[in-house]
Simulated assay, not measured.
Amino acid sequence: MIYYLIRKILFLIEPEIAHILILKFFSLKYIQNIIYFFLKPLPQKKIKCMGLVFDNVLGTAAGIDKNGEYIDIMSKLGFGFLELGTVTPLPQYGNPKPRLFRLVSEEAIINKMGFNNLGIDNLIKNIKKSKFKGIIGVNIGKNKNTSIENSINDYLICIEKIYCYASYITINISSPNTVNLRNLQYGIIFDQLLKKVKKTQKIMHKKYLKYVPIAIKISPDLSIKELIRISKKLIEHNIDAVIATNTTIDYSVIPDIKKNLKKGGISGLPLQRKSTNIIFILSKILKNRIPIIGVGGINSLYSAQEKIKAGATLIQVYSGLIFHGPSIIRKIIKKI
């Protein structure tokens, strides 16, 4: 109830600024003390996935804490794991502002952020400073100025740098907000990417005596034929997990959307059915050979259960947290 009062004020502010303000608000020491005083401990519901043991099935999706600045406070809210990023080898501004839009009546967010982040070296510093000892996933991407032909090197640079500090690594090749990035999901370059990523993982495993799983994050706008082809390659290259899905550029999911908003990826409630359908199809194709992490439009216990029934082992939330606040975390974890 308190969050909905806070939300009224936040939704009067430009979305990107509001996002930062709410994270800073929850990071204040006296606010944290109030939260800890009233929050009762959540039941332990450990689950194994990718060879890792998670405290529970629900984690943060990439985008909430790009630079790992709020690891400690986010971990106290009850999440079973945190996924940071997307980060790139070099810091970059991202796309021009405004680049984040709320559609409150549709419970949707449209973003065209473009991997704005402070770079992977800064993220490593923040992970080192944090006190959190749980599972941290790191979502990595390519820099805007790196050509698609040379983009694989950006991912390999990130893997080598973050390997010691991440519990798992997500390869983001499905954001619609970096030009031509989704081309990495197709053809020879997709095969080369998976091959080189697994080779680097093997080298790092041997060097550090630590196995860090690799997940691939895919688009919700893929056809069944494309999903079959991608799944075969994931199995062939022994990829550890698939994250379904990123945001959609299928604007038909929002009837009567204004023309000026057709400029980025849609998340939130309009993505819910589309992402769940992708999970269901993937589950039928993969047949438990590769675990699925479900994300996209989770805004209630029911929608979280739908993702799991469709075939997800773990789930992630982003837009649902913005529209419904931290209480959604506890509702989901208590019942699943």
Rank of each mutant, 00 (worst) to 15 (best):
R102Y: 14
L12Y: 12
V87E: 00
V53D: 14
I249H: 07
G320W: 08
I218S: 04
P43L: 11
K48A: 14
T276W: 12
S319T: 15
Y36G: 00
D121A: 05
L184Y: 04
I20D: 14
I157A: 01
I322Q: 07
I281W: 07
K142R: 08
G134L: 05
E160N: 10
K206E: 15
G268N: 05
Q32P: 02
V138C: 13
S174A: 14
A166T: 00
N67H: 03
N260P: 00
K24F: 09
Q32L: 05
P220T: 09
T200D: 01
N288C: 02
A215P: 08
D55K: 15
S231Q: 11
K233G: 04
I17M: 06
I281T: 14
I243L: 05
A304K: 11
I31K: 05
I285L: 12
A304W: 03
N139R: 08
G68M: 03
I266Q: 08
V197H: 07
G268V: 05
K198R: 12
K225F: 14
V242L: 11
Y251I: 04
P43A: 08
S275I: 05
Y3H: 11
K233E: 15
L84H: 00
S105Q: 15
R330M: 01
I257E: 03
I140K: 08
I188T: 08
G51K: 02
Y318Q: 01
V317T: 14
K284I: 06
S75K: 02
L5E: 03
K199G: 00
K206T: 13
F79E: 08
G296M: 10
L28Q: 13
L193N: 06
D55V: 08
F26W: 11
M113S: 11
Y318M: 03
K125I: 11
L222G: 10
L282A: 06
